[in-house]
Amino acid sequence: MENNQMNTSNPKIDLDFRRKQNAEEMRHQVISFALMILFTIIAFVAVGAGFSAWFTVPFILVLAAVQVAFQLFYFMHMNHKGHEAPMLFMFSGVFFAIVMIIAYLTIIWW
C-alpha cells in the first residue's frame, strides 16, 4: 500500500528550485494578505461612512466573498494541483449553504 515515491531526480537541484518556488509562493501569500486587509478596511469604512444600506450590504458581501476566495485559493492552496475533489465538495457545500440561507430568508413564515 506504500506508494511513496521520493523525488526521483537529483535532490540537490530540486531543493534550490523548490526553495525559490516556495519563496515565490510566499510572496503571493503576503500580497493576498495585504489585499485582504485592504478589503477589510474598505468594508469597515463603507459601514462607518454611512452609505445607504442598499449599497453597503451587497458591497460588503462581495468583499467578503473575494476575501474568502483568497483564503481558499492562496492560504489553503486550493489553486494547487490535486485539489479537484476538495473543490467539488467545497463548492457543493457553498451551493447548499446559499440555498439554505435563501430559504431561511424567504420561506419561514414571518
Binding site: A85, P86, F89, G93, A97, M100, I101
Partner: peptide, 23 residues
C-alpha cells in the same frame, strides 16, 4: 482529502447557523 470533506460539511454546518441567525 478527508479533512477537506469535513470542511465541506462544516460549511453547511455554519450555513445552518447563519441561516438561523438571519431568520
Amino acid at each position: 482529502l478527508g479533512f477537506w470533506f469535513f470542511l465541506g460539511g462544516e460549511t453547511v454546518l455554519f450555513a445552518s447557523l447563519f441561516a438561523t441567525y438571519l431568520a
